[in-house]
Design a protein around this nucleic acid. Structure first.
Lengths: 220, 220
DNA sequence: AATCAGCGTGAATCTTGATTCATTACTTTT
DNA sequence: AAAAGTAATGAATCAAGATTCACGCTGATT
């Protein structure tokens, strides 16, 4: 017997694993999920195509890992922003504006992970991430309703609708072109729409949106 | 010289053409755009695979025709409903509720044509249909703003956001399951969200939604 | 240093569908 | 009914990518 998996080896394996996901992510961010193909990913990660299969049984699993990673990041950002806010309504506002800003910042990637056409198998994976995000939003909506800050309504449907609104309005094919100058403006506009959709009156919604200044955080 | 294209022949050709599109549409409605493949479409249309190419230079063109047909129908329905309404705001309400109802009625098809993952080429085609719809909505939003029924806002972004909201909220992967019993309820909920998003206050929005009874029109 | 287990390789193989094209079957014209 | 031109056919061809695998390489163990 030889070659026990020492720490060093384990670490190397983990690094490879992450490197592959990172390569996939980079490609997705640049050219969409469709461009996430084994050969290019491997090339980018500096390994052979076959090697990818030592880390992921199938391409679907790789894409799944990629989607999960991105989703997790989005949800964490939403939660962080919401938790830092003083009340349920501003929590929602902060969370939504954070999501919107994030989506816009990593536009291509966000679209790849949540909207871009791929295939049925991948779609299932996406669903999980998307649902997790919707659930998170739903929770906050419920809280705001409970606190009397929003009219009573079906929080699940509202959450789903908001997710669609954000995605399509900011990064979908209909969204305004990525004019850097107007990014902030668009984020605010969408957030305003979202808050009003929930039943916040115009004036109050505008106030909430302006209040929640976009933090300039970053991360690929 | 022989075989001039008589009426009879021309008619036959047109029927074939339509039959192919219809077959594609049926398959898309049942199993999504991904299932729209030459062989199955041909089989369904009762012809050989090669024949499809006598009518469409490439698969992309066939899919394009399908998408265009469905989009046109949706836009016509929206316009009809909006035109029949008494004022700009109720026109919007009626149009949106019609779209929502239509999407829900032909759920699979609507998703195939507007949301389902396929490939980049098809995406371009979709864009046209989606954009046409958004433009139509945008127009109505502008009218309502001009009439002082809505707060001033970026109508283009709002329209895009609404389209996303409707699609995701009703037929996207996050949408509530197609519980026939609650269909009407969901349509109303989404429409309510949409109107409020535009800045209509809750109470008024609810009134508009209830007013616009869903016409029981139909068409595959 | 010798040995061994698992890692890495990348060319070859497989799969899935779109697309082509030589051939056959129809329609129309004379 | 023969001629002449189209339409339809569907098996064969192509293309794009995912996946496999026999073999060489490396680090771990003794």
């Amino acid at each position: 017997m030889a070659y026990r998996r020492t720490d060093r080896v384990l670490q190397h394996l983990a690094a490879r694993h992450d490197g592959i996901v990172a390569a996939a992510r980079a490609i997705a961010a640049e050219s969409g999920l469709g461009a996430v193909q084994i050969a290019p990913v491997a090339a980018r990660a500096g390994i052979a195509a076959g090697t990818v299969y030592r880390y992921f049984p199938a391409k679907t699993d790789l894409v799944g890992a990629l989607i999960e990673a991105v989703s997790a990041r989005d949800i964490a950002a939403f939660r962080r922003a919401a938790d830092a806010a003083p009340g349920p309504l501003s929590a929602l506002a902060a969370g939504l504006i954070t999501l919107a800003a994030q989506a816009l910042r990593h536009r291509r990637l966000a679209w790849a992970v949540s909207g871009e056409p791929v295939d049925a198998a991948v779609d299932g994976l996406r669903l999980a991430g998307r649902r997790a995000l919707a659930t998170e939003i739903e929770l906050r909506i419920r809280a705001a309703i409970a606190g009397g800050h929003l009219p009573d309504q079906n929080a699940a449907v509202a959450a789903a609708a908001l997710v669609g609104m954000l995605l399509e309005g900011l990064i979908g094919p209909l969204a305004p072109p990525p004019d850097a100058g107007k990014a902030r403006e668009n984020v605010q506009m969408i957030t305003l729409l979202a808050l009003r959709a929930l039943g916040v009156v115009d004036a109050r919604a505008r106030g909430l949106v302006v209040q929640s200044a976009l933090p300039a955080e970053d991360a690929a």
